[in-house]
């Protein structure tokens, strides 16, 4: 057997530019977690179903276990580490998850946060049923989903109210 090929990549993650040399087969999830040490993105199935690895690729939620890091060159990647403020203050979405008990063990949470972050950016007016359908993209074994839907709905409503108030 020969040594697997390595590729030299420039990745833009959370507004920072990183150079990494990884095997071509390395998934984006593993590269984020183990090469860039952004371990907030989780891995729980490696076949696209659970959504724990969901990150934003050019603003769209995508499975980082179903992308090779090499495919991500030239794209803007955002992970859960980008959500909180520089001082560690939680974003409105994160706060909504905490206030609504939208997480228990928290293993699924980064995936749901990035899913919701991408979705609400595109569909700020989404209603509960639409939110539920998007929440069905990812698996959570602890919460029974209701409070995840509550959290995202709560965040969407607050954003809408804030917008109205400022308008």
């Amino acid at each position: 057997m020969t040594e697997p090929d390595k590729v030299l990549l420039t990745l833009k993650v959370n507004d920072a530019v990183h150079e990494v040399a990884v095997e071509a087969r390395r998934t984006l999830a593993d590269t984020l977690r183990h090469d860039l040490e952004l371990t907030g993105t989780h891995v729980a199935c490696e076949h696209g179903v659970c959504g724990a690895c969901t990150v934003l690729v050019d603003g769209d939620p995508a499975r980082s276990c179903l992308m090779f890091a090499a495919q991500a060159e030239g794209s803007e990647i955002r992970t859960v580490e980008s959500l909180a403020g520089d001082d560690g203050s939680l974003s409105d979405l994160q706060t909504a998850f905490s206030a609504n008990h939208g997480l228990q063990c928290g293993f699924c949470t980064p995936g749901f946060l990035m899913l919701a972050e991408g979705f609400l950016a595109e569909r700020p007016d989404a209603d509960r049923e639409e939110i539920r359908e998007v929440v069905s993209s990812n698996l959570c074994r602890c919460t029974g989903y209701q409070t995840i839907v509550d959290s995202i709905q709560d965040c969407a409503e607050r954003r809408r109210n804030a917008k109205e108030a400022s308008a």
Binding site: T27, E46, G48, M67
Partner: peptide
Amino acid sequence: LAGGQSLIPMMNFRLARPEHLIDIGR
């Protein structure tokens, strides 16, 4: 290799083993 949403899961299960991937994503 296009979106990878069928090919990569199969590779992760090692049900597909292409020796070369030509990424047409760009």
